[in-house]
Amino acid sequence: MRRTAVIGRPNAGKTAFTISFATYLGFQSLRFVKQTVEGEAVELELSQEAAAASLVSPTPHKTTSIQALELECAVGKGKRQFELLDTCGLVEGIHPERNIRLAMAQSLQLIKDADLVLHVIDAAAVGRNQDSFGVLEEELASWGEARGNYLLLANKMDLPAARAGLAAIQSFFSALPVIATSARTGQGFKEVKKYVLRIL
């Protein structure tokens, strides 16, 4: 199955995006397969509300394992299946918690192996602080340019500060495609779907 990895810094809205995007594609209940860093696979079936309530969190590093969702999209008369993989947020430096280091290594592996990477950025945070890009973004940008099939999602566009953030993202990642999204309102989802279907 083709794999789409959702990556980015903690709190960018990766989990929120994953859940709302699945809902947008028409999934009422979501069957997550968590791939823990110990290599176990744990299944977990949640309604969209329950998933949002238990998995989305304002505290960073809520997601410490890969959470895979098997999704399908109607394409013409047929269906296209793919996997959407929510990952542990990436931060610079050496994280003191081993669990998070393992999970970030897992995310890195996916960035390398996935068929498509969706890099979620909190556009509102960028808008509030124009210096919020670091070495991590530089390296991800050059990785994305070299590998292709790398899409940036400027997320949280429902917040006022996000406008300025979107512009900053577009100019920083000038060689990569950017779609403005909001996991809260569903803004940009149609374009994301089109992009995903074009590649997968």
Partner: peptide
């Protein structure tokens, strides 16, 4: 190798961005 880079990230000898840099 990629495996060695990831192992270093796991052991806390290399930051994620450094590993990515080396991959790049």
């Amino acid at each position: 190798s990629v495996e060695e880079l990831l192992a270093k990230v796991k052991r806390g000898e290399l930051g994620v961005e450094e590993a990515l840099g080396q991959l790049n």
